Simulated assay, not measured.
Amino acid sequence: MSTNDPRHYDVILSPVITEKSTNASEYNKVVFKVRLDATKPQIKDAVEKLFDVKVKGVNTIVRKGKVKAFRGIVGNQSDTKRAIVTLEEGHRIDVTTGL
């Protein structure tokens, strides 16, 4: 495995484990929560280096934060950015094991 740059750990924050992302894994896609200022080339490089896989493409989504009320106190959730990473055939990432 190649040497890891510590900055790769800053780009990818966590895997997203939802019903929708689990269904996407059947099509060689993995969903990660990433930094808001992360670019597609940075995400691709980080995933390839950290997980030792070949990335076919990266799509990103910015989910706008919601306004929520809890016990009468109104607050805002932060915006989050997610990356849907498509892997080349034959490559897999098991997000349940972690890094």
Rank of each mutant, 00 (worst) to 15 (best):
S2L: 08
T3H: 00
N4S: 10
D5S: 10
V11S: 02
I12M: 06
L13R: 07
V16C: 09
V16N: 05
V16L: 13
K20H: 09
T22A: 05
T22Q: 08
N23K: 12
S25A: 07
Y27N: 11
Y27G: 04
N28E: 09
N28L: 05
L36G: 05
D37C: 03
D37Y: 00
D37F: 02
A38C: 11
A38V: 06
K40T: 08
K40W: 02
Q42C: 09
I43L: 06
K44A: 03
D45P: 05
D45V: 06
E48W: 12
F51I: 13
V55W: 13
K56W: 10
V58Q: 05
V58Y: 08
V58A: 10
N59H: 14
T60A: 06
K64C: 10
K66Q: 14
V67H: 11
V67I: 15
K68N: 05
K68D: 03
A69H: 07
A69C: 10
F70S: 10
F70N: 13
G72L: 11
N76L: 07
S78F: 00
D79A: 04
D79K: 03
D79Y: 05
D79F: 02
T80G: 07
K81M: 02
K81W: 01
R82V: 11
I84R: 04
E89I: 03
E89G: 10
H91V: 01
H91F: 12
H91W: 10
I93M: 01
V95N: 00
G98M: 10
L99N: 10
